[in-house]
C-alpha cells in the first residue's frame, strides 16, 4: 500500500511539474501571438492571418492544463468548506462524494474522447479531429483536441494519488489554503 501510494504521489508530482511547464509555455505563446498581431497591424502591410486562431488554441491548452493544476492544488472555488473537526468517517464519506463528482463529470467526457457512435473508436472525438484542420493554417485540430483527455487523465491520477495518500496516511494531506477558493473575482 505504502509503495503504491508513494509511487502515485511521485507520479502525480511529476505530471504536475510537466503540465505546469507546458502551460507556462502556452501562456507565453499567447502573449507573443497577440502582441505580434498588434505589431503586425501597425507595422507590416499584410498582418498574418493565423495569430488570433493560434492564440485561441494556446489558450485551450493553458486553460485545460491549468484546470488539472488547479485541481491538484485544491484551488477551485467551493460552496461549502467542511470543518476539519468533523468525525473522521464523515470526512472520508465527504471525500468519497467529492471524488464521485469528479468521476461522474469527467468520466463520460474521457470515454467519448476515445469512442464514437456505436462505441466505434474510429469515430471518437480524437479520431474526428484527425480529419478537421484549423481555419487559418494547415494543422489538424487533433493537436488542440488532445488536451481534453490529457487534462482529464491528469486529474484522475491526481485524485487517485490523493486517495492513496489518505489511505496509506503517508503523510497528512496538504493543508488547503484558507481563502484560496475565493481568490477569483
Amino acid at each position: 500500500m505504502h509503495a503504491t501510494a508513494r509511487f502515485l504521489d511521485r507520479l502525480s508530482f511529476g505530471i504536475d511539474r510537466l503540465l505546469r511547464a507546458i502551460a507556462l509555455v502556452g501562456l507565453v505563446l499567447m502573449v507573443a501571438f497577440i502582441s505580434l498581431q498588434v505589431v503586425a497591424r501597425y507595422g507590416f502591410s499584410a498582418p498574418p492571418a493565423w495569430t488570433e486562431e493560434a492564440a485561441r488554441y494556446a489558450m485551450v491548452w493553458v486553460g485545460l492544463l491549468g484546470a488539472a493544476i488547479s485541481y491538484r492544488a485544491g484551488f477551485d472555488p467551493k460552496l461549502v468548506k467542511l470543518p476539519a473537526t468533523l468525525p473522521r468517517p464523515l470526512l472520508a464519506l465527504a471525500a468519497l462524494l467529492r471524488g464521485a463528482a469528479v468521476v461522474i463529470f469527467l468520466g463520460p467526457i474521457l470515454f467519448f474522447c476515445f469512442f464514437g457512435p456505436g462505441l466505434n473508436p474510429e469515430r471518437s472525438f480524437l479520431a474526428r479531429n484527425l480529419y478537421t484542420t484549423a481555419e487559418s493554417f494547415d494543422m489538424p485540430t487533433i493537436f488542440v483536441a488532445v488536451t481534453v483527455p490529457i487534462f482529464i487523465i491528469a486529474i484522475f491520477l491526481h485524485g487517485l494519488a490523493h486517495c492513496a495518500r489518505g489511505l496509506a496516511t503517508l503523510r497528512t494531506p496538504r493543508p488547503e489554503r484558507d481563502f484560496n477558493a475565493l481568490d477569483h473575482a
Binding site: 497591424r41 499584410a46 492571418a49 488570433e52 481555419e135 487559418s136
Partner: peptide, 22 residues
Amino acid sequence: RAQNGDQVTFMSAWGAKPTVVS
C-alpha cells in the same frame, strides 16, 4: 476586415490592407 486567410490573400491582391477580425 478579412474573415480568414483566404480573404487576406485576395484582398491583398486587390492592393488593400486586410486585417483579420472576428
